[in-house]
Amino acid sequence: MSTLTLSPNIPGADDFYAELLAAHEGLTNAESDALNARLVLVLANHIGDRAVLSEALQAAMLKEEETA
C-alpha cells in the first residue's frame, strides 16, 4: 500500500512556488479560491489512491498523529 509522501519531493521548489503565486496574480479572492479548488481536484485525480488522499486530507488538517 502506498503512503503519502511528506518528505521534500519537488525539484526546484522555489520555481514551483513562484509559478503557483504567478497563477494567482491579478485574481480576486473568489477567483483565487476557485483556482485552488480546481487545483486540489486536478491533483487529487492525479494521485488517484483513495488511501493516500485520505492521508493528505488529514495532513492538511494538521492532524499528524493520525497520519504518523
Binding site: 503565486l21 494567482h24 483565487s32
Partner: peptide, 27 residues
C-alpha cells in the same frame, strides 16, 4: 503582496512545523 499570497505563505509555514516537505518552500 496579495491576500492569496499571504494565505499560501502561512499555509507553508503551518505545514513546515509538522511536515518536512514544506520546509524547502519556506523562504
Amino acid at each position: 503582496k496579495s491576500e492569496m499570497s499571504r494565505i499560501l505563505r502561512d499555509a507553508v509555514l503551518d505545514l513546515s512545523e509538522h511536515y518536512e516537505f514544506a520546509r524547502p518552500l519556506v523562504n
